[in-house]
Every structure is written in structure tokens, then in C-alpha cells.
């Protein structure tokens, strides 16, 4: 098990052990093990088809793993799904929103799943994501970037301990990407929310993440501390290319 750069006694929000999922076509992931600590931002890097989305889907129970365990805040998702997933907010593949409802009502509908969500929290997340001026507008009129922001608002609405974002900068313009980075950093620092973020935008990952996990062909090839990479005098891009280069 690789636990780079963090104290073993720190609270683990996510524990993935020996995760394996093989699809009918023979592709998939195997032997994936890692931790995410409280307030940590972890990047998931890998070439197309390396299994990043599969890892995220297995963590959130969207696919059934063949082997391995996933614990969120100490709760196993296969034994106690409802309790485990309560602590997770996520945006996987693309924002899933109800187009005919307003931005505010989409959030209100989702907050209904969580017993303790305060209605005032909806205004708070709208403010954090910069959607307050559009709160009463129907979501079908939103641009992709605004939908992405709303999906992030939905992911953080119930004050989760872990947020999983799959390619969150997809569809965002330069300003939107910068905003996203600010939101993630703010939430991690202020509320100690942990993040697992997959992205192809390596500069974003380098600026945002504390640690990165590199996947290739469904295997975990490295977990490293971004600061350590920089200390070695390498850019994350060079490090990544070196790691995935065939031997």
C-alpha cells in the first residue's frame, strides 16, 4: 500500500483496497489500492482508457467490483451503501440535471435525499459556485460551463467529506477552469473536504492536487506527492510521461 507524504494517523476519508473490475471485453482495472486523507486533493491521471472513470464508478457503486473493498469514512460501500455514500458528492461523466427545473429547484430536490440538509445551504452553495444570479433560471438554458458549476454545487450541497470529480474542467473556459480551481482549493482548506479528481489537464492537476495516482492499462503504476516531484526539479508532465513510457 502506498501512502506517500502523509501521516498514517491522519483520518482516512477513502480507503480502496485491491479493487478489481474486469469488463466482458477483458478490459478494466485490477489491484488498485490507495487512501485519501481528510482535506486532501488527489489527482487521478492516466492515458485514455487507463481506467480512471472505472475507478471512480467502482468507488461510488455505479459498477460492481469483482474484488476488493471500498470504504468511505470507514463504511464499506458494499455492506452499508446508504451510510457510506452519504459522505460523497460526485460529478461523473457529465452533469445529470433536470432541465425543466430551475437551478434552485434542482438543488432543493437533491437536498431532499439528505435528512439534515438546511435549505439555507442551497443559497450558500449557489454563492460558492457563483450561480446566485441564475438561481431561478431553468437549467436547460444553461451553458455547459454553468451546468458543470451546478453539478459541482450539487456535489457539495450536503457537506460531503469526499468529492469525486471526473474531468470537471470539461466544457469550462479559461475563466471557468480558474474558478473551479479556486472553489476546490477553498473547500479543501476551509471545510477539509477531500477531493478525488481525474483530469487530462496536467497543469490544473499540478496546481491543485496534493498527491497524484497514475493509472495505465487498468493498473496503478504510481502514487506520488506533487511537492516531491517539484522538489526533484521535474514538472508533473515530465514525471507522468516518464512513468507511463513503455520500458
Amino acid at each position: 500500500m502506498q501512502t506517500v507524504g502523509k501521516d498514517e494517523n491522519m483520518e482516512k476519508v477513502l480507503e480502496v483496497k485491491s479493487l478489481k473490475k474486469i469488463y466482458k471485453n477483458g478490459r478494466g482495472i485490477s489491484d488498485i489500492s490507495f487512501y485519501i486523507y481528510k482535506g486532501e486533493i488527489m489527482g487521478l491521471l492516466g492515458p485514455n482508457g487507463s481506467g480512471k472513470t472505472t475507478v471512480m464508478k467502482a468507488i461510488t457503486g455505479l459498477i460492481r467490483a469483482n474484488e476488493g473493498t471500498v470504504k468511505i469514512c470507514g463504511k464499506d460501500i458494499s455492506d452499508n451503501f446508504e451510510e457510506a455514500i452519504k459522505n460523497v458528492g460526485c460529478l461523473i461523466e457529465k452533469p445529470s440535471l433536470i432541465g425543466n427545473l430551475s437551478c434552485y429547484n434542482n438543488l432543493k430536490l437533491i437536498s431532499g435525499y439528505y435528512r439534515n440538509t438546511d435549505i439555507a445551504r442551497i443559497d450558500e452553495v449557489l454563492h460558492i459556485t457563483g450561480l446566485t444570479p441564475y438561481k431561478n433560471e431553468k437549467v436547460k438554458t444553461f451553458s455547459l460551463g454553468m451546468k458543470q458549476r451546478l453539478a459541482i454545487a450539487m456535489a457539495i450541497c450536503q457537506k460531503p467529506q469526499l468529492v469525486i470529480l471526473d474531468e470537471p474542467a470539461n466544457g469550462l473556459d479559461i475563466e471557468g477552469t480558474k474558478e473551479l480551481r479556486k472553489i476546490v482549493s477553498y473547500l479543501a482548506k476551509k471545510y477539509m473536504i477531500s477531493f478525488l479528481i481525474s483530469s487530462h489537464q496536467i497543469y490544473e492537476v499540478e496546481m491543485l492536487c496534493d498527491r497524484i495516482l497514475i493509472l495505465q492499462n487498468g493498473k496503478m503504476i504510481d502514487v506520488c506527492n506533487v511537492k516531491s516531484v517539484k522538489d526533484m526539479g521535474l514538472s508533473l508532465e515530465d514525471y507522468f510521461i516518464e512513468k507511463i513510457r513503455p520500458v
Binding site: 461510488t60 457503486g61 455505479l62 451503501f81 446508504e82 451510510e83 455514500i85 452519504k86 460523497v88 460526485c90 461523473i92 461523466e93 457529465k94 445529470s96 440535471l97 437533491i110 435525499y113 439528505y114 450539487m154
Partner: peptide, 13 residues
């Protein structure tokens, strides 16, 4: 269209 993900990642079996 993957919109079912919105419901599946909520605390409901």
C-alpha cells in the same frame, strides 16, 4: 443518457 447517475450516487439503495 447517464442521467440515472444523479439518483444512483444518493443515499438510496
Amino acid at each position: 443518457d447517464k442521467s440515472i447517475i444523479m439518483s444512483l450516487v444518493r443515499p438510496i439503495t
